[in-house]
Design a protein around this nucleic acid. Structure first.
Length: 480
RNA sequence: GGCCCCUUCGUCUAGUGGUUAGGACUCAGGACUUUCAUUCCUGCAACAGGGGUUCAAACCCCCUAGGGGUCACCA
């Protein structure tokens, strides 16, 4: 019973990592780390049409970005490899032959037209599943020979048992599929490649996978796969069908709901830990009730007993909030590193590192996504400052404004340098001198210095800008 | 349509027969403050419907409705 836990994530390389698949990967990984078992990456590339090497690479990259590592996989090897299905064809052949030999599978020579006819006939009877009538189940050698001479390339079908198939899913509970709801399905295509329901079983069996954790869209594939395990005489693994992730309209999450690739979220400036934290909370919850959970806590606490059965809507607002929490908790050095690419990409002329860190720190608590750093800091890197909105213009057109500006400029001349403390002192003096205070005092200066009515604390801005820049900006504001 | 799965605030969820049904996001209001934001406080808001079982049901059973998935030589 105390068999080693071995789980796998088995994406097909037909694009970059989808958010739904990423969630499956995350739960598998969390479970493996929680139990001290192994997490295996397997590439299911039997769909020759759609699979590509680039997709495989991008999946590795996205997984690495998330911080998910695997113990066995195409790139790192392992004792039950190879880990790319197209490199395992000899194994599928071997087991196909076994099934053919022990009578659990057979060659079917039906043409597309014949198949279509059967499908129509079944449809007329109100059946859409189990439409294949099993007509080639017991072909004689002579019949097979005749078909071959016609040039027909057979597929291999599994004899699906005429009985209920019941299994216990550790998230859904006991579920049974009644006999007759599935027909003899194809396990090997006419070109010799295995189909998903066959290859997955051969691989999971040979790779000693103990728990098959996947999206519940695979629930209805499970009886087929169990039939393969049984035909092979293999032990059936434990299944865990996790609920799907839905879009805001409650349909399966897809492109039309916006970004659905992990890459998209990475580019927008979401942090991997925040994304993992958020996604782990989709259909799972910590017994503590806490929501901001470190990866370590996630690993410590993750358990299928707390995975819910119902699907969850991907709530981007909450992800953004959570990402903001993570950004705020970042050390400034780290945050600056992460923001650097966005800033460089924006073409900003960046100051030396220590100054840059100060600048980034200024807007740290305003960020929900790293990408936003570009707009938040636009006023710092702009060539000139102009009031950005009508309201800003109004602030600067107030009667008391020029008084404030002149007073400010006079005070500025009295100091060698401008910094946080001196600025506060100056503002106090300006207020006393002009009698202007509060909003009317601060807003004009804010607009003069940043062009906007919202932004970071002014003393911080001034501290970074320094005396000369402030002087120039206020002087030019006087001419508006 | 057949089969399978699911159903607590708008969203994510806690809850396993006795709770004022709790928390989080969002939203609204307030406090703080030179603005925004942060932070803190307050508030709005839910057991899909109908039958049972029981002294007692969000929790157990049945039915209905709704949602999702799946019915390929895709995975």
């Amino acid at each position: 019973m105390s068999q080693e836990t071995r789980v796998r994530f088995a994406p097909s390389p037909t694009g970059s990592l989808h958010i739904g698949n990423a969630r499956t990967a995350i739960l598998n990984w969390l479970f493996a780390r929680h139990t001290g078992g192994s997490f295996i990456l397997r590439i299911e590339d039997t769909d020759l049409e759609r699979s590509s090497k680039e997709s495989e690479e991008s999946i590795y990259n996205d997984l690495h970005w998330l911080g998910i590592n695997w113990d066995e996989g195409p790139d790192v090897g392992g004792k039950v490899g190879p880990y790319r299905q197209m490199e395992r064809t000899h194994l599928y052949e071997e087991y196909t032959n076994k099934l053919l030999a022990n009578g659990h599978a057979y060659h079917c020579f039906c043409t597309q037209d014949e198949l279509e006819e059967m499908r129509q006939k079944a449809l007329a009877e109100g059946k859409t599943d189990a439409w294949y009538d099993g007509r080639h189940r017991n072909l004689t050698t002579a019949q097979k020979q005749a078909f071959r001479e016609e040039g027909r390339q057979p597929v291999v079908r599994l004899k699906y048992p005429d009985q209920d198939i019941t299994f216990i899913d550790i998230v859904k509970g006991e579920t049974t599929f009644p006999a007759g709801s599935t027909g003899d399905f194809v396990i090997v295509r006419s070109d010799g490649t295995p189909t998903y329901n066959f290859a997955a079983v051969i691989d999971d069996g040979l790779m000693k996978i103990s728990h098959v954790i996947r999206g519940d869209d695979h629930l209805s594939n499970t009886p087929k796969q169990i039939a393969v395990y049984n035909a092979l005489g293999w032990k059936v693994p434990i299944f865990a069908h996790i609920p799907m992730i839905l879009g805001p309209d409650k349909s399966r999450l897809s492109k039309r709901h916006g970004a659905t690739s992990v890459r998209g979220y990475a580019d927008a400036g979401f942090l991997p830990d925040a994304l993992i934290n958020f996604m782990s909370l989709l259909s799972w919850s910590s017994p503590s009730g806490d929501e901001i959970l470190s990866i370590q806590r996630l690993i410590d606490e993750f358990d299928f007993s707390r995975v819910s059965k119902s699907p969850a809507v991907f709530n981007v607002e909450k992800l953004e909030w959570m990402n903001g929490m993570y950004i705020r908790s970042l050390a400034i050095e780290k945050l600056t590193d992460l923001c650097l690419p966005y800033l460089q990409n924006a073409g900003y002329h960046l100051p030396e590192r220590s100054v840059l860190e100060q600048i980034v720190a200024m807007v740290q608590e305003n960020l929900e996504r790293l990408k936003e750093i570009v707009e938040k800091l636009e006023f710092v890197f702009a060539d000139k400052v102009i009031p950005a909105t009508a309201e800003a213009v109004r602030m600067i057109e107030k009667e008391s404004t020029s008084k404030v500006f002149w007073s400010f400029l006079r005070q500025l001349d009295k100091v060698e340098q401008l910094d946080f403390a001196r600025f506060r002192q100056i503002m106090k003096t300006v207020s006393e001198e002009t009698g202007v205070m509060g909003k009317d005092l601060w807003m004009p200066l804010r607009v003069a210095l940043t062009g906007q009515i919202h932004g970071p604390d002014l003393p911080k801005v001034v501290d970074i800008f320094g005396k000369e820049r402030c002087k120039k900006l206020v002087e030019s504001a006087l001419n508006i």
